[in-house]
Amino acid sequence: MTPALRPRSLFIALGLLLALALWGSLALGPVSLPLGETLQAALRLLGLPLGGSELNQAQLIVGQIRMPRTLLGLAVGAVLALCGVAMQGLFRNPLADPGLIGVSSGAALGAAIAIVGGAAFGGIPEAIAPYLLSLCAFVGGLAVTALVYRLGRRDGLTSVVTMLLAGIALNALAFACIGLFTYLADDATLRTLTFWNLGSLNGASYARLWPLLLVAFAVALWLPRRARALNALLLGESEARHLGFEVERLKRELVFCTALGVGAAVAAAGMIGFIGLVVPHLVRLLVGPDHRVLLPASMLAGASLLLLADLAARLVLAPAELPIGIVTALIGAPFFLYLLIRGR
């Protein structure tokens, strides 16, 4: 299979796409700001003492609403795409996505417990109440993934096939529990739960952003360093072992990175589908399966696509907003089908 693009031209194209997405995310929104004001507001945010009180509104919108949202989209998109590559590499299957090892369903279960349980019991201390949902989602994702990994291990070896099957079973179990909470929920919490499952970058704020940024940074630094090992893994586990890679450690790292990254992304923005599945696929079609290119390129593409999807989410129905999970699936699924049909 010959890749359609040289890596260098792909990176240039993705760099331009990301710049475009960043510009759109900061400059466009339901409130139409003149480009000059956006620029001035951005400069003022960087500390340049520009005058003019009419800039206050622009500065607020760009600085407090669009900027955190853009950073959130950037981090979530990059992490979801990277973890998608990691999972497809680990399972040596292009249909794998981070949901397979239970991160998503675990996080959803954690969220259901937080939303329904929090409403039922009340009495949650003021200090943690706003973070309860994110915290529960993160812990839930990590816990279920840890269980899947644990079930996949026997005699010091991790069987990917057993992990896959354990993942399917635990996903079913988690969704059954979510169903139970859905049944117990009242109308208001039910709507919250439904919307959470569709994902949103709405309401991003710096205070809630930094844990995700830290995790995203760590994952983005760590996973590309495992590109060679992932390439070797493509040949098969024993081949990779013979080539001198510590396969057991690699598997552990991949699972841990994904649990951490996707857990944090889902905790911050809810469930956003299709980025983790489609983006690595797309990039692989463009430049081939070399993980040294695939990982950073997917990261750029994931961040750009999520930002563009979010732009659509906030503009299409303005002043209301579409959950972003709907946009990513609505655009992602037909595009994926198109690629499949064209590739035949």
Binding site: G29, P30, V31, S32, I61, I65, R66, A188, R191, T192, F195, S200, N202, G203, R314, L317, A318, P319, A320, E321, P323
Partner: peptide
């Protein structure tokens, strides 16, 4: 009138645009 969406899922910028 312009719809701001569902009451539990309001969007800050959309409302500010009004």
């Amino acid at each position: 009138l312009p719809s701001i969406g569902y009451q539990r899922q309001l969007a800050a910028e959309g409302i500010l645009a009004l």
